[in-house]
């Protein structure tokens, strides 16, 4: 069994877990999983699973904004989520950055002006973590907010993309890969991308874009541009999947009522 993607990908064109470059891991999502919450969801992408509960929109005490609702996020990574048992504290800057990112993404995306002086709290609990933390959190929050009945123009869908940059010159083109797992995230340069559907006739718009690794800029087949292109496509795939989940849930609800 190979230990890294870079050395074997050029010969097998298969990744460590046997996927092709554009294959997503299995996404299973469901909404209304927590009966007591205003909105809730459980999203599992491969071995990453996140539970999301929404509290609100409700009266925001001491909330300064008189025209909009304020979106707040709380991420809790369970100590047993990763291979090594470890407590991730609330003061961890990485987690705080993720919280801010999720809040700011939904603050601009939701129709918050319909709920003046209110607050919407997104609580995320990460049960198991194998790459794609931010993406899975954003996807879970997105459909949980729909369950809570907060209006939004489209589903905010997210994915990670990476590139395999060949070390030897036998394969001169950088190869993009979609939806990385933890081993690949450690090894390859990758970015987190979240998009919302654009207006008719225009492309999907980028809401969140985070990249932490160095990537060379070259004139011809620029790896960054390729990653972005593939990512936009991946987000669209995830979005259609999540939409299907919402529709299925809606059908079940209307049937139950009859």
């Amino acid at each position: 069994m190979p230990l890294d993607t870079t050395s074997t990908y050029s010969t097998t064109l298969l990744r460590l877990d046997g996927r092709r470059w554009n294959e997503l891991r299995k996404i299973s999502a469901s909404i209304s999983t927590q009966p007591t919450a205003d909105g809730s969801s459980l999203v599992t992408t491969g071995n990453t699973s996140v539970v999301c509960t929404i509290t609100g929109p409700r009266e925001g005490r001491g909330q300064g904004d008189r025209t909009n609702a304020i979106v707040d996020t709380d991420i809790n990574i369970a100590p047993f989520a990763q291979l090594d048992r470890r407590r991730v504290g609330r003061t961890d800057k990485r987690v705080q950055e993720l919280q801010t990112t999720i809040s700011q993404a939904f603050q601009a995306h939701l129709f918050t002006h319909l709920y003046p002086r209110s607050s919407i709290l997104i609580s995320l609990t990460v049960l198991s973590l194998d790459g794609g933390l931010l993406s899975t959190c954003l996807n879970a929050a997105s459909i949980a907010l729909i369950d809570a009945g907060v209006p939004m123009p489209s589903i905010l869908a997210s994915i990670t993309t990476g590139t395999i940059i060949p070390t030897d010159n036998s394969l001169s083109r950088p190869e993009p890969v979609l939806d990385l797992n933890n081993a690949e995230e450690v090894e390859l340069p990758f970015m987190n991308l979240a998009t919302v559907r654009g207006q008719t006739g225009s492309e999907d718009q980028i809401s969140v874009l985070l990249m932490e690794t160095r990537v060379q800029m070259s004139e011809a087949n620029n790896p960054l541009e390729i990653m972005l292109r593939i990512g936009l496509d991946g987000c669209a795939q995830v979005r259609s999947h999540l939409e299907e989940v919402i529709r299925r849930h809606g059908r079940r609800m209307t049937q139950g009522r009859r």
């Binding site: 801010t100 999720i102 993404a105 601009a108 919302v196 980028i206 809401s207 990249m211 160095r214 800029m217």
Partner: peptide, 26 residues
């Protein structure tokens, strides 16, 4: 960025932006 690479990108939410504009920013 340094002289020849992009080292880090951070767009923490906010209003969505067209991909073509983002690429131009690089």
């Amino acid at each position: 960025a340094n002289d020849f690479e992009i080292c880090q990108i951070a767009k923490h939410g906010g209003k969505p932006v067209d991909p073509a504009i983002v690429v131009k920013c690089f």
